[in-house]
């Protein structure tokens, strides 16, 4: 028996107002694997990521996290209750392009809030765990600061710590560096690189070609809602099968 994939996506389709954004997408991500999803804007890559934790509801298809179905009841195919959905989501950590920190809570409480009110940890245990993860992303000294006082890179590192502290099985990154000033991109990528070498399973929507090349185990290229290339980075970046990917990579070189 082959190892059960950490994330399995089958026949995923999604339309917005009659326009097909994803069409029959299949993807399997093994434990410890880092998958980069590339594609031009509007290709459906963010939608794909957001479907994985059901922030978008797919029209068709199924998604399993460690064999467990998300979004729909396995037996009846009926939508999960919000409570059931919330429970499955704790297995997935998500990092957003615009950080999405909660501005009324300081850095520490941004991390502890879900530990206390979702996982039911005692406050002292939550603080201890939160500080460990803030330390990991280099934000422990800023624990008492409020998000409004942080730089974009610092905010994103806090957001990563917030997601990691829930100890999810899979981390989802939705263009985590796209909203950052160029000089702040490095600090976030270096945290993500550390995570990949620690064996985290990660699915990353990104425009950072170097990062995708050096860190991923699998690179996926989406075009108009279809996966047109899925290969190891060595193959993807040096001898892609599709003409479209070749053009995409050339454009990147020119810019």
């Amino acid at each position: 028996m082959p190892e059960q994939p950490e994330v399995s996506i089958r026949n995923l389709s999604k339309s917005f107002d009659g326009i097909e954004v994803l069409r029959d997408v299949d993807l399997e991500v093994k434990s410890g694997e880092v998958v980069s999803i590339l594609g031009s804007s509007g290709s459906g890559k963010s939608t794909l990521l957001r479907c994985i934790n059901w922030l978008e509801t797919p029209d068709r298809g199924e998604i399993r996290i460690n064999g467990e179905r998300i979004g729909l009841q396995d037996k009846t195919q009926k939508p999960m209750s919000r409570r059931e959905l919330a429970k499955v989501r704790t297995q997935l950590g998500m990092v957003f392009q615009s950080f999405n920190l909660w501005p009324h809570l300081n850095v520490l409480r941004n991390v502890t809030e879900a530990l206390i009110y979702v996982q039911g940890l005692k406050k002292s245990d939550a603080v201890e765990r939160a500080m460990a993860f803030l330390h990991k992303v280099g934000m422990a000294e800023k624990a008492a600061s409020y998000p409004a006082t942080l730089s974009g890179g610092q905010k994103q590192r806090v957001a990563i710590a917030r997601a990691l502290a829930m100890q999810p099985k899979v981390m989802l990154f939705d263009e985590p560096t796209s909203a950052l000033d160029p000089e702040l991109v490095g600090e976030v990528l270096s945290v993500m690189k550390d995570l990949s070498s620690e064996g985290y399973t990660m699915i990353i929507v990104t425009h950072e070609m170097d990062f995708a090349r050096n860190v991923s185990d699998q690179v996926v290229f989406l075009e108009k809602g279809i996966i047109i290339e899925k290969s190891a980075p060595e193959i993807f970046f040096h001898s892609p099968r599709s003409e479209r990917v070749r053009r995409f990579l050339e454009l990147d070189k020119v810019v």
Binding site: N53, A86, M94, N100, W102, H104, V118, A163, M166
Partner: peptide
């Protein structure tokens, strides 16, 4: 909407999101 998505993503129920965020 972004703050709501962040709350859903860490597994908050709508009530916890309403009360805490």
């Amino acid at each position: 909407k972004e703050q709501r998505e962040a709350a859903m993503a860490v597994g908050m129920t709508p009530w916890v999101y309403f009360r805490r965020i």
